[in-house]
């Protein structure tokens, strides 16, 4: 039985373990983004950031995981985009969620449009955007 969505539904939230400095080093290596603002404390302080900050793309990857967990192997992620709104720092716990804004019924299942976001422990949105996914696959 495929998932069923309705306008206004809240997407199953994903809370990640707190971001660590080791994770930022791992993400730098895995992504090839070696900007020292993410890994070198002295550099980040000198750059006026008050310390290292997470890659925006790491937070976006968390949102991606929320979406792929949601659609599972039966569904298909079609499109998603986010705007980077606030810095994420080591120690921050990020929770990703969203709200269904529109559902189109199709032959194979549903095409779902949603607002998506990631928020820190204080409840401030650090990224926000939108996604489109199918509850089925071809």
């Amino acid at each position: 039985m495929a998932m069923q969505f309705a306008e206004g539904d809240t997407l199953q939230a994903l809370t990640k373990p707190p971001v660590t400095k080791t994770q930022l080093v791992m993400y730098s290596g895995a992504s090839g983004d070696f900007n020292p603002i993410h890994t070198v404390e002295e550099f980040a302080v000198k750059a006026g950031l008050g310390g290292v900050i997470a890659h925006g793309m790491l937070t976006m990857a968390f949102v991606g995981q929320m979406l792929t967990d949601l659609v599972g192997t039966e569904g298909t992620l079609v499109d998603f985009g986010v705007r980077f709104k606030q810095m994420v720092r080591p120690g921050d716990t990020i929770t990703c969620s969203g709200t269904v804004t529109r559902v189109e019924n199709e032959a194979g299942g549903q095409r779902v449009f949603a607002e998506i976001w990631a928020a820190n422990d204080k409840g401030d949105q650090v990224v926000s955007g939108d996604a489109e996914f199918l509850t089925y696959h071809n």
Binding site: A47, G56, M57, M60, T76, L77, V78, D79, F80, G81, V82, R83, F84, G129
Partner: peptide
């Protein structure tokens, strides 16, 4: 240096 990532979107 000093570039800021504003937004990102993927289409699959």
């Amino acid at each position: 240096k000093g570039l800021i990532h504003g937004d990102e979107r993927f289409r699959y």
